[in-house]
Structures are given as C-alpha cells and as structure tokens.
Design a protein around this nucleic acid. Structure first.
Lengths: 138, 138
DNA sequence: CTATTTTCGTTAGGTAAACTAACTAGTTTA
DNA sequence: TAAACTAGTTAGTTTACCTAACGAAAATAG
C-alpha cells in the first residue's frame, strides 16, 4: 500500500511535468486554463467559485485566470439578478472556437506516449483504472 | 481514446495539485525534492544529471535543489576520481533521517484518499494500472 | 599532440502559476 | 439594524521551474 502510494505519486508528478511542458509549448493556455474553458463549455454558465473548486485552485487564482480570459475576449460575464455578488461566466464565440480547435490539438504529448508505448490490452486496463482515479480526484 | 487522454489529463492535474499542496503543508520539501532524496537513498550515490533525468527537470534546476540540500546538510558531494567533472551525490546522516521520517509522514493525503474512497477491488485495479502508468512515465 | 567540440555541473536571471492577505459590495442572521 | 458571512477582486508574494551563458574537464578530429 505504501509502495502503491509512493509509486503513484512519482508517476503523477512525472506525467504532470510532461503534460504541462507540452501544453506550454503548444497552446498559450495552461492546463488549468484549458480545463476552465472546458468546464465553462460543459456547463453553459458557471460561477467563478465553482470553477475554482473544480479545478482545485483558490478563488483569487481563478479570478486572475478569468480576468486574462476576459481581456482576450474568450468569456462573457453576466451578473446574477437574484444575487448581485454572483457572476455567471459563459464562453464567447471566440471561446467556443478554442474548444473546437482544442479538440484536435489538445494534449498531443500524452496521446503520442500512449500510442507509442501501450498495446491494446494495456489501454484497456488504463480505461478501467480511470474511473477509480476520478474517484480519488473528485 | 481522446476521451481517455482528456480525462487522464484532468485526473493527473487534479491529483498533482492535491498531492503538492499536502506536501508543502507538511514537509518543507517539494515533491521533486523528496523524490530526489528517495533516489539518492535508493542508489547510494548518483550524479546530478541522472537525478535531473529521473525527476524530469533540467540540470540547472537540479543544481539549485542540490545546493539548497547541501546548505541544509542533507547531502554530501564527492567528486569522481576518474572524471573530475562528475560529482557523486550521497545522503548525509541528516538526509537518511529524513528518509526514515518520510516513510511515515510522506503523502498522507493520497493514502487517506485511497483509504476513504476505494474498496479492495478498486485498489487491485489501481495496482494493475500502475506499471502501465510507469511505462508512460519512463 | 594540439585544436575543436562535447559534456558535466553551476550561476545568474527570468517567468508562469499558483498562493495569502486585505478589500469591496451584497446578503443573511441575531 | 448591526454584525457576521459570502462572492469576487486586487495587490503583492512565493514556488518551482525555465533559458542563457559560463568554466572546467574529457573526448574527438586534424
């Protein structure tokens, strides 16, 4: 069990470095930023605090990300009528374009690694393990 | 396949944040630093360049980490006789103490998560997936 | 054998992605 | 209706890396 935890930690740390590097090389968005865009897209509209929780960063950090995205014209803000403190975030046209484009360009690094190093059976095991990892990450 | 890659990316990113946070709260060493200590411990003596490769950072970054560790009295340097450019890194007494102590304190966060959220079967699947993830991370 | 290139490690300086502390404004509770 | 809480933001800081440039040692080429 300790061995599992240690090895999992190493693997997560290493893969994270690989993925982060390939993102900053190719995409002008960080991993968290692309996840934010994906979450907004999936939800239609969503609050900054929810985005922060789901991406596991603080609200001030999310605030910065949204500020940058607003300046780039990727998102729209719409303040809530029933509670004026709340701000609904949604994607602009430009933001939706990024989602479409990201569908192809996103995460080539990991995809290439999987293609190059894993066989069909191994990918199957990975698919089985995925919901378990998601449970840990929830 | 794209879904697998995307979901895996999200999971790795999220778990990485969780793990990193719990490390910086409890340990005064970063994840990479603790991995470095573990690698030195496992190898007895090892070169900075090897440590950089295995932790997936650049040699200058590793140089900084080793400098900090030397100042803290955690490692010893011993220059190689047959090749004077090389420097063997090994753990001092204080470094070995950290390894012992880390064996218990290390990564409580992930261990707790696994205990709380996964059953025996799920842990088994995770154990099967581990060598595959290691293959990706190699 | 000398001159060039390569390798190992380091230093200096810079940057991205996060953080904390402190604030404003709106909402709920006592 | 005053106090406490919540949502979001701003300002400033920290962390964990990076690149560029370098010195010293070793390997290779002419």
């Amino acid at each position: 069990m300790d061995i599992l935890v240690d090895a999992l930690t190493t693997v997560i740390s290493g893969l994270h470095k690989t993925i982060r590097r390939s993102f900053s090389d190719s995409s002008s968005f960080s991993l968290t930023e692309l996840q934010t865009i994906a979450l907004i897209n999936r939800n239609g509209k969503i609050l900054p605090s929810e985005l922060a929780t789901k991406t596991k960063i603080t609200t001030p950090s999310m605030s910065q990300i949204l500020k940058k995205m607003e300046m780039r014209g990727i998102i729209n803000r719409q303040s809530c009528d029933s509670d004026k403190r709340k701000v609904f975030i949604s994607l602009s046209k430009a933001g939706k374009d990024i989602v479409e484009q990201a569908r192809f360009s996103r995460n080539e690094a990991l995809k290439t690694l999987i293609d190059a190093r894993l066989n069909v059976d191994e990918i199957k095991i990975l698919e089985q393990a995925l919901p378990i990892l998601q449970k840990l990450n929830a």
